[in-house]
Computed example of a mutant assay.
Amino acid sequence: MIKNKISLHDCFVQGKGNIVSNMGGEKVMLSIDNGKYYNLGEVGGRIWDMIALPVSASQIVTALMSEYHVGQEECEQQVLSFLELLMKEGLIQSE
């Protein structure tokens, strides 16, 4: 059974089989598994870097709030939404 929602306490790590490159300050990715290209953008690329090793969503939020001018509630919502998208596409794994 697949979990529908993720929480700030869940930990995530990059999935295998992705080719990632920096292009003009943004990260782009090719998934070998599904053959799709993704533009992660600047902040998405930063999140991707953070999940090279297992990390909780709350740790990601804390790091982004210290690096960018963003409120906690908005940051939490955006991070969880982004992680849910990556999970749905099979690009990350929950630990």
Rank of each mutant, 00 (worst) to 15 (best):
M1F: 10
I2A: 14
I2T: 15
K3C: 03
N4G: 08
N4E: 14
N4Y: 08
K5E: 09
I6R: 09
I6W: 07
I6T: 13
L8P: 02
L8S: 09
H9A: 07
C11F: 08
F12D: 04
F12H: 01
V13E: 12
Q14Y: 06
G15M: 01
K16T: 12
K16R: 14
G17Q: 05
N18F: 02
I19S: 08
I19N: 11
I19V: 13
I19R: 12
V20G: 09
V20R: 10
S21V: 15
S21E: 15
S21C: 09
N22T: 05
N22I: 06
M23W: 03
E26H: 15
E26G: 03
E26Q: 13
K27S: 08
K27R: 15
K27A: 08
V28W: 05
V28D: 00
M29A: 09
L30W: 09
L30D: 02
S31M: 03
S31L: 09
S31D: 09
I32L: 15
I32T: 14
D33F: 08
N34S: 13
N34P: 05
G35E: 13
G35Y: 12
K36V: 02
K36R: 15
K36A: 05
Y37N: 07
Y37E: 09
Y38A: 00
N39K: 15
N39A: 13
L40P: 03
L40G: 02
L40A: 08
G41P: 04
E42C: 11
V43K: 13
G44P: 04
G44C: 04
G44H: 08
G44M: 07
R46F: 05
R46K: 15
R46V: 06
I47M: 12
W48I: 03
D49H: 04
D49G: 11
M50T: 06
I51F: 01
I51H: 03
A52S: 13
A52Y: 07
A52D: 12
L53V: 11
L53A: 11
P54C: 00
S56Y: 05
A57M: 07
A57L: 07
S58Y: 06
Q59A: 14
I60E: 01
I60T: 00
I60Q: 01
V61S: 04
T62Y: 01
A63H: 10
A63G: 01
L64E: 07
M65N: 07
M65D: 06
S66E: 14
S66V: 06
E67G: 02
E67K: 12
V70L: 12
V70A: 12
V70Q: 12
G71P: 06
G71S: 11
E73K: 11
E74Q: 11
E74R: 11
E74A: 12
C75W: 06
C75E: 05
E76M: 06
E76T: 10
E76P: 04
E76N: 12
Q77R: 15
Q77T: 13
Q78M: 08
V79A: 04
L80K: 04
S81G: 10
S81F: 02
F82N: 04
E84G: 10
L85D: 11
L85P: 00
L85H: 12
L85Q: 11
L86W: 11
L86H: 00
M87W: 04
K88Y: 07
K88G: 06
E89I: 04
E89N: 15
E89C: 08
G90L: 02
L91I: 03
I92W: 03
Q93M: 10
S94F: 03
